[in-house]
Design a protein around this nucleic acid. Sequence first.
DNA 1: CTGAAAGCGCTAACAA
DNA 2: TTGTTAGCGCTTTCAG
Lengths: 341, 341
Amino acid sequence: MRRRKEPSKTISITDVARLAKVSISTVSRVINKSPSVKERNRKRVLEAVEQLNFQPSVLAQRLATGKSSVVALVIPRYEGIFYSFYALELIRGIGTLTAALKLDLLLHLTDTHSAFNVRGVGGVIFADVIANRGQLEEAMRLGVPSIVINNYVEELPVNCIAIDNRGAAESVVDYLSGLGHTRIAHITGDVITQAAAHRLEGYVSAMRKRKLVVREDYIIKTDYSRGQARQAAESMLSLTERPTAVFVASDSMALEVMSVANEKGLKIPQDLSVVGFDDNPSGLYGPVSLTTVRQPLVKMAQDSVKELSVIMNLGVKKAPVKKVYLPTELVVRESCQHVSP
Amino acid sequence: MRRRKEPSKTISITDVARLAKVSISTVSRVINKSPSVKERNRKRVLEAVEQLNFQPSVLAQRLATGKSSVVALVIPRYEGIFYSFYALELIRGIGTLTAALKLDLLLHLTDTHSAFNVRGVGGVIFADVIANRGQLEEAMRLGVPSIVINNYVEELPVNCIAIDNRGAAESVVDYLSGLGHTRIAHITGDVITQAAAHRLEGYVSAMRKRKLVVREDYIIKTDYSRGQARQAAESMLSLTERPTAVFVASDSMALEVMSVANEKGLKIPQDLSVVGFDDNPSGLYGPVSLTTVRQPLVKMAQDSVKELSVIMNLGVKKAPVKKVYLPTELVVRESCQHVSP
DNA sequence: CTGAAAGCGCTAACAA
DNA sequence: TTGTTAGCGCTTTCAG
């Protein structure tokens, strides 16, 4: 491509300059609202821009400045991600805020190995860094503003916003224990994720604090899927010494547990108390509304965009590294009651 | 910026070339898998790439080639868009397919006036072109591959995929009429959208075909919000000659109508048959499950990505312009019954 | 206040 | 096969 064969349809800064009879530098200045342009020239440029319907190429701008106004959300790809309450909440939060800040949002789902090219975006929000930690490190190495959400990364000097999952789990156990329960079980999420791991930790430590027995058969690990939740519930509710309460790591799994209980003739909450996690609206609709933990997913997402835009403006070096845990809230509804004597 | 002050952290094709002791062209060739590179050189380049952990700048590539692998979804911005079943379905469909095709997805919510810079993206999917028709025309003028969904645009030579809303509405009226209803009302969506307008048209024409009276007070226009649905239902159900059936332009509005009916002591479906539109899962959960129209939103979204990628590969000129209507399906559940005598 | 020109990192036509 | 070089469209320094 020595030179475009067919005359370019796209009009560039040069065309504007020619029409306005100024140099491209002046056009550039006008575009970038530099004050040092004589009013007369500014006007002419503006007219030319108008007349030619000129829009600067973001690409060229980015290439020249190294800045970009697109924020990438990098999130591990998993089956049905676009149907998961969690991912949707993140997208909602990030989407609304990027839109408000006039930033564009680039959605990138990572497979285990797909190398996302961080060059070219203004900043990156990594959700749930797991297998793709390499990408995070690369972004940091390249100096691309980054922030991680839903994962408190201690080892790296990177901003992060996570949910206080340990505290949340503890408050659930406390609540259940306060209702007189001692046989409290826990169905975990995928403990490869920090969230699930922390919920488990919180559960265990709260049980210990309350001097309650932590039984192996009262802890079943899953991958967050409803299928595994069902299996877990089936085996757990078949135990000779059934738990009287169960803390489930997500609402959608909790719903599954409730329906298994139902199939086994157990009444909720009379025979089994159930607590979920997420405050997913679908927990509202069943015959028994679900007691759950509300986590500020949307807020976390929004905060991340705010933080990121600060970094994008201040520069990676100047912006202080902040790491925070966001508190959760227990939402008591109908799926728990005092343990029957 | 005559030249970077601090030595650039980012390594470029030049660094690779230097290390591999070849020209940048050769490096470029290797990157682009050109066959005409001697094996020995290819290997050296690859090693250098590996060693330097080099990743080409997408930006520069795009600038040089004019091609890009990001697809933008341009969708009108409205309150709560990230909570709307419709928008979410589109995002699901487009998101899964772009991911599968290794394309990145850029989400752009348009306000009335925000000028989206189409330059720099590989293709654009316009959803519901309304106020932003200018953007569509601009994209076409610039030769950026575009496709519009959920709107059958006749006047422009652009690909589009829409839902057969007219047919859908007709089948609803036919169904209701088949159940013996003659007093069939319609609560529309925002008729500024083609979907809502077509549903209204379909309703009217089916009523006429069946020789049923089309009454003005049986047609109430809304903006798709639940609030307006409530108002509509309230006034409509207060009519002396109440309709015995109502076709509502969205499930979420239909739900609202059902609850208004309920408040007024009307039983569904005994006293009032209700049909929604969307097949939104939340229509399943109430005391009476909602009869509705399923529209292939996800398919439409996915198809659009496929089509778009064809255009992106073939070029705007070579690719044929296709315009299609996708069929819908009536999903009969519990909210309708034979009209009571 | 303005313009010339160097560069951003890469591709591709052309010549060797 | 390979290297040279002219762009892609814009920003920014530097010298007026």
